[in-house]
Design a protein around this nucleic acid. Structure first.
Length: 667
DNA sequence: ACTGGTCAACTTTTT
DNA sequence: GTTGACCAGT
């Protein structure tokens, strides 16, 4: 074993956690308490104690966390051991199980995974079909209701005749017909196949006899079921989490999984990690003061040995443009005078849309930056089109993607022909592709359309076999396809501006390159498509290598840390978000705020605006009520004017803060 | 069947 | 400020 690993490097609590190898273990790891370090040390310790590396499964919630853990484990173990440890997300674990065994549940193994926009598209279509286009049942609402009920195993509405119930039924039935599954299905079906087929269950239980789950506070009921199913009799389950950082309730996460862990596993060993190695006392103190307002937590007291030299700042800004300007100015200055690399800075915000202004300001000043998370590369239209072709090749039942690509680029198969085909497909209960191939259908078409359809079918057919062959050079082949249909030229023609043309063209090139890269990884076209659906391939190489200021949503920031953090847009309605307040999840918003604060290592600045541009119009806003919940001991309140002019003395700032507070409590 | 234009609606967070 | 849905003209 490499010399890097010594149990004596851990503090007593961490060490206790690493040494408890067998039986159920619950590690309550506050923010910045060396969680990943402890977990990786635990893996190393297990292997040192003779546990075969291949029997260890570490499940995380996000790919980012999985990648990080894989890297850390790799640094601590011999290379061949490290490779044998399985580190993956819940969803990719489910895909693994299902690609082998989903046929037991009546699906075909070449199922397609429907993500975000595929789902919305499908639901939207169903809503208009069921209710006409004037009906404005919000498709996002419908989807989230459907998702929630799928996870809980109960129908959306008790009234079977209600529109939403109809939509739900149609959605699920249609998915099955398309030989497609959504994210919820991945969990549901994996749990189902394990529950209903003891041989499958036994196989996986024997494969993974030691299970670790990271970010356990984000698991939902199904994920808990999956863990229990895999754990088997031995119950070598170690979960790590922090209820104060539970921020995925809206997605069905059950905070009770961690709060009531004892209900699921007998007599677990519970270990708390409370020493924080990340942040200074002012930052931690401020963080503790906000999370105290939540009830029903597992009490933790985070402390730090680092007194730090900076107080926490709260800055009032006139509007969001100036907010971006000031933050960028400060970054520029700290980089110039303190020689701080740009990677030391992060701008954190509640909603994706808030990153735009910062992006353009940073570009303006030629400061390198990276956007973490945000709109996926794979959601761009041109990329979805290309993915559509690949999906149709892999799964001929995938009507949604077939319809997406059937006339992109335009090839003479217009709305009339498509309408005819879908109608017949519904009538016969066959896939659209099946209908197109049917001679009876072809005879109904006018000669021109028939020719176009035949050409299209021949085109697909020519590539299907070669692309799906076990070790096919599918990237190279697909490049040929794209070339033959003149995809790029057609796309360029539909672009309005030169900039758009360039960016789309670049995207296509990048996509083709990543496709060709994955040829070498031996997972086949199917593996590539899985990776895309699970967001695994999201150029994490690229983004890791990229340097510069990080722009991140609060959700995506969990697990990360930065010396200098700007938490922007701390306004009522943004953080806490208006929609969240309507749903009554103020506590979760508070945890989100807490997560944001605890990302900061040295210096934390929070800003709020008096006015913000929304939909192109300025809208007045107010500081967040969360700011009033903070303990002011380590807090300085500044106005933009002060900061823009001269740095203020601390006592002045303090009295300003006191004044402000007094004013607020009066009103 | 395709193109280009106007208009509306929209932004919570993500595997 | 962006994206898509819809419509009228070629």
């Amino acid at each position: 074993m490499p010399a890097k690993f010594r149990l004596s490097d851990l503090n007593p609590a961490q060490r206790a956690a690493a040494e408890q190898i067998r039986g159920p273990v619950l590690i309550l790891a506050g923010a910045g308490t060396g969680k990943t370090r402890t977990v990786t040390a635990r893996v190393a310790h297990m292997i040192a104690e003779g546990v075969p590396a291949a029997q260890i499964l570490a499940v995380t919630f996000t790919n980012k966390a999985a990648n990080e853990m894989r890297e850390r484990v790799g640094g601590m173990l011999r290379k061949d051991d490290a490779k044998k440890v399985t580190v993956c997300t819940f969803h990719s674990l489910c895909v693994r199980i299902l690609r082998v065994s989903i046929d037991r549940l009546g699906y075909k193994k070449n199922f397609t995974i429907y993500t975000g926009s595929d789902q919305t598209g499908l639901v939207r279509k169903i809503i208009t079909r069921k209710a006409g286009k004037d009906e404005n049942l919000d498709h996002n609402l419908a989807l989230s209701l459907i998702s929630r009920s799928k996870n809980k195993g109960i129908p959306v509405s008790d009234r079977a005749d209600s529109l939403i119930a109809e939509v739900e039924q149609a959605y699920n039935a249609e998915l099955k017909l398309l030989n497609a599954v959504d994210f919820d299905d991945l969990l549901i079906l994996a749990v189902k196949v394990l529950a209903e087929h003891p041989d499958v269950r036994r196989e996986w239980q024997q494969r993974f006899r030691y299970i670790m789950v990271d970010e356990f506070q984000d698991t939902n009921a199904l994920q808990m079921k999956l863990v229990t199913a895999l754990a088997g009799e031995e119950q070598n389950v170690c979960v790590v989490g922090d209820d104060d950082q539970s921020i995925y309730g809206w997605r069905g996460a059950e905070i009770s999984n961690i709060l009531e862990f004892e209900r699921f596993f007998d007599d677990p060993k519970v270990i708390k990690l409370e020493q924080n190695y990340r942040s200074t006392t002012p930052i931690l103190h401020t963080a503790n003061s906000i999370i105290r307002h939540n009830i029903g937590r597992r009490e933790k007291r985070l402390w730090s040995e680092n007194p730090g030299s900076d107080r926490v700042r709260v800055v009032a800004m006139p509007d969001d443009r100036i907010e971006a300007q000031l933050v960028v100015d400060e970054i520029l200055e700290a980089n110039a005078t303190e020689k701080r690399p740009y990677d030391d800075f992060a701008v954190l915000f509640r909603t994706n849309g808030q990153s735009r202004l910062f992006e353009s300001k940073l570009r303006e000043f030629k400061i390198p930056y990276r956007v973490i998370g945000g709109q996926s590369f794979f959601d761009r239209r041109e990329i979805k089109d290309l993915l559509g072709y690949l999906s149709v090749l892999a799964n001929p039942d995938d009507d949604v993607n077939l319809l997406r690509v059937i006339n992109t680029p335009a090839r003479g198969i217009g709305a009339t022909t498509v309408g005819l085909a879908t109608e017949r497909s519904r009538a016969l209960g066959r896939s659209v592709l099946w209908v197109l191939e049917d001679e009876g259908f072809q005879k109904m078409l006018p000669p021109k359309a028939r020719g176009a359809v035949l050409d299209f079918l021949a085109f697909l057919e020519r590539f299907r076999e070669p692309m799906l062959a076990p070790s096919a050079p599918f990237g190279t082949l697909f490049a040929k396809m794209v070339d033959e249909m003149d995809f790029i030229e057609a796309m360029r023609r539909t672009c309005k501006t030169d900039a758009e043309r360039d960016s789309r063209h670049r995207n296509v090139s990048e996509f083709m390159e990543s496709l060709r890269d994955s040829e070498g990884r031996r997972k086949g076209l199917q593996g590539f498509l899985d990776g895309v659906a699970l967001q695994q391939d999201r150029d994490d190489d690229d983004i890791e290598k990229q340097q510069g200021v990080s722009l991140i949503t609060l959700h995506a920031a969990k697990g990360l840390e930065f010396p200098f953090v700007y938490l922007v847009g701390v306004e009522e309605g943004v953080l806490p978000h208006k929609r969240a307040l309507e749903e009554g999840s103020r506590d979760e918003e508070r945890r989100l705020f807490y997560v944001g604060i605890t990302r900061a290592m040295q210096r934390l600045t929070m800003t709020f605006c008096s006015s913000r541009i929304r939909y192109g119009e300025p809208v007045p806003c107010q500081r967040s009520s969360f700011l009033d919940e903070l303990d002011p001991t380590y807090l300085d309140l500044h106005s933009y004017d002060e900061l823009a002019a001269e740095p203020v003395e601390e006592d002045h700032a303090l009295s300003y803060f006191a004044q402000m507070k007094a004013m607020l409590s009066e009103g």
